[in-house]
Design a protein around this nucleic acid. Sequence first.
DNA 1: CTGTTAGCGCATTCAA
DNA 2: TTGAATGCGCTAACAG
Lengths: 329, 329
Amino acid sequence: MGVNIKQVANRANVSPATVSKYLNGIKISAKNYQSIENAVKELNFNINEFARGLRTNKSKTIGILLPELNSPFSMPVISVIENKLMEFGYSTIICDFKSNPQLGKQKLDFMMNKKIDGLIVMPYYLDIKILSEIKIPIVSIDAVIENVDCDCVIIDNAKISYEATNYIIEHGHKKIAAICGPENIYTMQERLKGYVNACSDNKITINPEYIIYGNADMRTGYEAIQKLLDMTEPPTAVFAVNDDLMEGALTALNDRVIKIGEDISFVGFDNVIIANIVNPKLSIVVQPLQKIGETAANLLLSKLREKSDTTKIIKLKAELLRQFSVCKI
Amino acid sequence: MGVNIKQVANRANVSPATVSKYLNGIKISAKNYQSIENAVKELNFNINEFARGLRTNKSKTIGILLPELNSPFSMPVISVIENKLMEFGYSTIICDFKSNPQLGKQKLDFMMNKKIDGLIVMPYYLDIKILSEIKIPIVSIDAVIENVDCDCVIIDNAKISYEATNYIIEHGHKKIAAICGPENIYTMQERLKGYVNACSDNKITINPEYIIYGNADMRTGYEAIQKLLDMTEPPTAVFAVNDDLMEGALTALNDRVIKIGEDISFVGFDNVIIANIVNPKLSIVVQPLQKIGETAANLLLSKLREKSDTTKIIKLKAELLRQFSVCKI
DNA sequence: CTGTTAGCGCATTCAA
DNA sequence: TTGAATGCGCTAACAG
């Protein structure tokens, strides 16, 4: 096979042990350092990760576990994480589990068997127990995990939803629907909380039928619009709290030829591209996706290097992009 | 550490070698098979991939190398590949190189150092030479690679573009623009070819200014529309030949308050969600993304298992979704 | 079909 | 600071 440590050692006139020290940043004499460095270059030596892993039981790979890879939220976040981690020599195994808890466990087992050194997880639809049994650093994205010792990167969901709802209310709306997705998911709960608080702070009584639960997918968004528009007293404004829900809702509105910004007001989430393609341009909540990925990667890297005992929860700010989909009433 | 092969062997009253055979699907007696199976379960044995890799120099991981992870084309394809490969015990390292050839080489080196057993690649913006030097099975997605021995999964770009262009022509258009992206990219060339052939078959002389080149990104799509609309004789129909170009073009049309299907006709590519959100719903070319991923995974798997010498190029059919963005003129 | 044996390349003792 | 020796867990070659 390739060049090994022994050949480097021979060439540099030192022992393999010294080369190993060189490779691991352990102090050696300047003279040896130089000759090893030369030998490594001349022989084009690359460390054998298998052998190293066998010895150290570390893989220099990170697992990324997601309910769904194919989502406008996941993509940019993962992309940033992957690039950041690679800078530090880590590779990533990315797994999605199709929002299926069983598959989730399976994929996690798979990763653990590959001896991942750390895990970045979006913990939805997942049996949290399996996370608490893991003995490697975990960083959670988009949600705080109760009873599991891990760092988290979240956005200020309640606050930004409050702001978005308030923005709708300022335009005179009182009948405001929220398309919420799953009832038991942290992010959704927080976003709902913001909506509810904004209403109550403005003395608006919420018609409970205006709050639509379901999966966090397009279909739920689509059906939500159907249901809402078929009510005897339909809402005048709709807040869709994630990208899939928004896309489903927009499709339904299009199918029923409802003019956004005239017939109905709309605030969505995440997908800036769509917000700018639709006429009129949509007001949406924009999450700092790059920053979420960056932060997650950094948290994990620092846990991997210095083993601090502190648990960090980092809350990033989202923004409300105010465009033209909310009209005065 | 964990349980090893020796402990399993002890428990099952056989030698480690026999356990190894069991693990590798080499024939052993039914009796031993049973007792090993039991021992494996009872001890909860998991194979140590490092040790195996050190011996075999195989990693059971596949590299996926892409110009850009964050794209509506890549994600569904990758998602399918990842799931399929995992079924067969392979994990995947996914790398994007931000359409930067140098970074591409770096990432490929990284993967090779991780001893990937096979590579799936979207070979754009990549120095093809580095692929020809690789000694593992390669499957190319979306493009045929000259001078490199690898299987390919492509769609019938020229044909579907011909069909799309023809569809526009049938509506009476003669001034048809094509927003094409990079001139030196296989897929784009094929799509352009389809457009050109459809025009010439219908005796339409193409104004060369109607063919817009650039990067395969939103910006190019955006600026293309600006340029086209500012011409003294602007086109009456536009064909945007990939998702990013389409998104950019749609944004520009929206910014300039051009009504699709009335002021201008439009055919796009790939993004069904957007096609159905926009009013009127767009006619677009739809690629079989799931199938592309599945095919790529299967091709690689079969190369990995039986080492056939045949090189396969599999051409899948795309579809033209006919909706309402092309009007009679 | 089964078992014995050797060694893949590295990190880590411990003695010098 | 350095080096000789050891073994991580597995597979492959070969002898039985």
